[in-house]
């Protein structure tokens, strides 16, 4: 933001009295002004002078020229945005506009090419020059790591592009998620144990051990394990992984929000997985003959010698 405001003051210093008047006129009319409007509002002006000024404005982008009903209109455009493309050629302006429209979601290079009708090499050149001027930037999208999207330099990328709190650059921070889900689980089971200790009947125990996402959010924020500020929605999705791990259950409360509670399983781990065969990666290839067989199985031997 810093340099664009500097540019703005510079631009303002350069303008003469006439230019100022014209600018004010244009600013007051958002719809744009025509040549007739100018003549009416600023009658004491010679045509060549006016042409000079308007040409200057059009060149540096303060004015935009457009045509409605066979009449030419000049429209004022905020120079803080405009000045960024100062000294840019037409192609750059077109591309800039397309990128600007895309906002903080960014736009894919292929889409720019279709919209601008520029060929690939030319477009690459333009994008490169805009990038070196720090007008636009390329952001890697998390949904497809090869796909780059372009957006204005000073915009904060949308969370669909960056992936939200779980992404550092383009990498998913699985360790961070794991730690958080462990903590959430700990919180829930501690809450449960506490309510069991308090006693007072099974119904009370159950109701006491429910926690909302807000409670967990507060607990996680107080722990201070996260540098990134987490939203309640983030915590909800973490809690859902705890539910998926079968360590908690989720019910819908009367007000429509979710309540979470630590739960036990029905069954202890089955006998099958207590053997080596139940978890053997090559069980499919095991037989009476061949290298993999029960008699010479190293997993078996290790387990029997434990």
């Amino acid at each position: 933001m810093g340099d664009s405001s500097e540019v703005k003051t510079e631009a303002v210093e350069e303008v003469s009295a006439l230019e100022l008047r014209l600018l004010e006129l244009a600013k007051s009319n958002v719809e744009g002004i025509s040549n007739d409007d100018i003549k009416e509002q600023i009658p004491d002006i010679s045509l060549p002078e006016l042409t000079n000024v308007i040409n200057k404005f059009l060149k540096n982008g303060t004015f935009e020229l457009f045509k409605t009903k066979d009449k030419l209109y000049y429209k004022y455009k905020d120079p803080s945005k405009k000045t960024a493309v100062k000294g840019a050629d037409n192609e750059e302006k077109v591309v800039y506009k397309i990128i600007e429209e895309a906002g903080n979601k960014g736009i894919w290079i292929r889409d720019i090419r279709f919209k601008s009708n520029l060929n690939m090499t030319q477009l690459n050149k333009v994008l490169k020059s805009l990038e070196t001027k720090k007008i636009i930037k390329a952001v890697k999208s998390v949904s497809a790591s090869k796909k780059k999207v372009y957006m204005l330099y000073d915009l904060e990328p949308d969370s669909t592009v960056t992936g939200g709190a779980w992404y550092q650059d383009q990498d998913f921070e699985s360790e961070f998620v794991d730690v958080l889900s462990q903590q959430c689980q700990r919180y829930l089971s501690e809450k449960w144990e506490e309510s069991v200790k308090k006693g007072g009947g099974p119904l009370l125990i159950r109701n006491r051990s429910y926690a909302t996402a807000n409670d967990v959010h507060k607990f996680i924020s107080e722990l201070g394990i996260s540098n990134v500020p987490l939203t309640v929605a983030d915590i909800e999705s973490i809690l859902y992984t705890v539910v998926l791990d079968n360590n908690a259950e989720r019910i819908v409360a009367t007000n429509g929000s979710y309540l979470y509670k630590a739960v036990n399983r029905f069954l202890p781990s089955p006998g099958l997985v207590k053997t080596t065969c139940g978890i053997c990666p090559v069980a499919n290839r095991c037989g009476d003959m061949g290298l993999i067989n029960a008699k010479a199985c190293t997993y078996f031997t290790e387990w029997l010698n434990q």
Binding site: L272, T275, C277, A283, D288, A294, K295, C297, F300
Partner: peptide
């Protein structure tokens, strides 16, 4: 099926 296989392996071992 895996259980049967495991049983067989245990027995043959």
């Amino acid at each position: 099926e895996l259980c049967y296989k495991t049983l067989y392996n245990i027995m043959s071992r």
